[in-house]
Structures are given as C-alpha cells and as structure tokens.
Nucleic acid binder design. Structure first.
Length: 330
DNA sequence: ATGGTTTTTACTGCGTC
DNA sequence: GACGCGGTAAAAACCAT
C-alpha cells in the first residue's frame, strides 16, 4: 500500500465498520444467546440496550463503538483533545492502528482488471477482515481492562463484587466514550478505585500506586474525570472503614479498635474529619485508641500501615482527643 | 494560571529507656 | 545514644476557581 493512499483508506476503513457491526447485531440477535467467554446465559439490558453475560459480565452485543485510533478524526472534539491517541492505548493495539486494509481496487497488481469472480472474493475477504479487526479491537480493550482490574483487585485483596462493579463502571465509561485519549490502564485503575469506595472497602490512592501500571497522578485524574462525567455517587470515604484493616495490620486487640471507633464517632460529630484525608483521620484514631487501651503502637508504625505521615497523625489525633474531651464533658 | 487548604518533608528539642 | 514524640517551617500536592 502506497503512502498516498492512506487517507482514503482511513475513510474506507471507518465507514464499512458501522454497517458491519449493525449487520452483526441483527444476525446475532436471532442466534442462540450464549456467552462466548464462559458459555453462561446472556441477558438483555433493556435500559442500556446491550446484551451482557449473566455470569462474567462480558458484553456480547457488538453495538459498541470501535475505539481504535482515529475514530473521531472528523469531530470538532478532536481539536480539544490534547492528544488523539494516548501512548499506552496505541501500544496495546497490536497494529497501532496503522495496519493496512484490503482496498477496493478493481485491478490486480499489474493493473489488469479482475474477473468478477475474483472481485467478489476480495469483497468477501474485505468484509471478514474488517469484522475481525473491529471486533478484536473493542474486545481486546475490554478484555485487557478487565484483566487489569482483576489483577489489581486480587493484589489489593478486594472482593469479587468490587471487581464486578469496577467492570460495570469501566464499561459505562467506554459506552459514553470517555476513554479516547486516556490509557486503558489508568481508567481501569480509576474504575476499580471508584468501585472499592462505593463498596465501602476503600483503598487509598497510595495503595493503588504500586499495583497499577500507571502513575498515581494519571489514574487519580482519571478517577476524578470518571466521577464527574459518570455522576458517580461516591461519598467521601468513611475513616471508620479503614479501621479494621489498620488494626489487623498492626495486630491490635479489638478493644483498641473499638476505642478508635468511638473517637471517630465523637470526632465526626464535631466535624473534625471534614476536608481531611480519611486515612489520616483513621490512622490517628487507631493510634489514639492504642494509647488509650495501653497497647501502644508507635506513630511510625501506624504511619506505615496507613500510608500517611507521622505529622498528620499527630495533628489529627490531637484534634480527635480534643473533640472527644469536648463531647465527653458536654 | 491562581490561591487556599492539606499533607509531607526535614529538622529541631525534649524526655525516657 | 537511640528512640519516640511534639512542634515548626517550607515544599509539595491537591482542589476549586
């Protein structure tokens, strides 16, 4: 394929995709509804107009947009996008969106006209080539994202339902075309982070840092973006939800944890936690609790397991104690 | 970009074991 | 003397505007 042909090929490539996927959908609907991934039953989500596997959550219907490179080179949005294709995204597409397509030529390599038979054959080949390509592109994206979510979830000890929520969030993001220009990795991490918080088993951004393949900043930004665009109703994490984990990491007895919880309650009543990092407040409560029940652990160790600085613990725990005294005497 | 808030880093002095 | 703790100042990170 010569270089001068490229732009016309790009157009060629994009337009047939639409009709292809439409054809496929109608074809598939009459077929038996069984998930290709796990052979589970496929259910229809009317509201979203998509078909999803009951068991593994895989989207079966191919009514999704192909998020391959150059997908929105015609829209005005492209101009606002700082980069059309984020590096990680391109890297994960095996062909980087640059592979050649079967063109619509009517002559052979020597310029001789093709027989109608051959032309038809090529046309069929082209159709299948396109199907294969687009189907794989979106499947691959989802699969990779889900794989990442799974991997990180188990690394962080997050339960299955959190992974599922994360998958749903991620798929929504894909549907709403929030992904272009962002890396799959970052968004997968962001989705999992959001899911963990929604499920009440939050992990701090710092905890995600080592298990994610992208920088903290990137998925943090991705998360904010997701939360805003998807209208995710994510409450600020409750410090109390960190207590059990911190306590167990520190081998603290139950009463220390209970005491910490009480401190949090009175602190919350006085608004000590508002605007402060929940993990910091929780860490301070744990520390204070351990002191109060005479099972003292050092600030240093609490700081380690909670991933906050000792200074933060000091500040918060003074405030917590003050709030506790005020509530106690009031 | 900017400014306000929170957190972190780095450094200090004090007390205890 | 090392260690835990408390405090402070300045830098960095975060967030909304």
């Amino acid at each position: 394929m010569s270089h001068s042909n490229r732009s016309s090929q790009t157009r060629e490539r994009t337009r047939p995709e639409r009709t292809d996927s439409a054809n496929e959908r109608t074809a598939e609907q009459s077929e038996e509804a069984v998930c290709p991934e796990c052979a589970g039953d496929v259910i229809v989500d009317e509201r979203r107009g998509e078909r999803v596997c009951e068991d593994c959550g895989v989207v079966v219907a191919e009514d999704q947009v192909d998020h391959g490179p150059e997908w929105r080179s015609f829209t005005s949005q492209e101009k606002r996008q700082r980069s059309r294709v984020g590096a990680p995204v391109t890297e994960t597409l095996h062909d980087r969106g640059l592979s050649s397509v079967i063109g619509k030529g009517y002559t052979d390599a020597k310029g001789q006209p093709l027989s109608s038979e051959t032309r038809e054959k090529m046309s069929r080949l082209r159709t299948w080539d396109e199907r294969f390509r687009t189907r794989n592109a979106s499947q691959r994206n989802l699969k990779q994202a889900f794989g990442e979510i799974d991997r990180m979830a188990s690394a962080l000890g997050l339960p299955k339902n959190v992974r599922e929520t994360a998958s749903v969030i991620y798929r929504r993001a894909v549907e709403e075309e929030l992904l272009p220009g962002r890396s799959i990795e970052a968004m997968a991490t962001a989705a999992l982070y959001a899911a963990a918080r929604q499920a009440g088993t939050p992990r701090t951004l710092d905890e995600f840092e080592p298990v994610s393949r992208v920088e903290r900043q990137e998925f943090a930004r991705g998360y904010r973006y997701l939360a805003r665009e998807l209208g995710l109703a994510v409450e600020p994490a409750d410090p109390a939800s960190y207590l059990p984990r911190f306590a167990s990491d520190l081998d603290l007895p139950d009463d220390a944890q209970r005491r910490a919880h009480e401190l949090l309650e009175s602190g919350k009543a006085r608004g000590v936690h508002s605007g402060k990092s929940p993990a910091g407040v929780a860490a301070a409560a744990i520390y204070a609790g351990s002191v109060l029940v005479d099972e003292k652990v050092t600030q240093r160790r609490v700081a380690e397991v909670a991933n906050v600085s000792e200074v933060t613990i000091r500040n918060r725990y003074q405030e917590l104690l003050a709030a506790d005294r005020a509530t106690g005497s009031a």
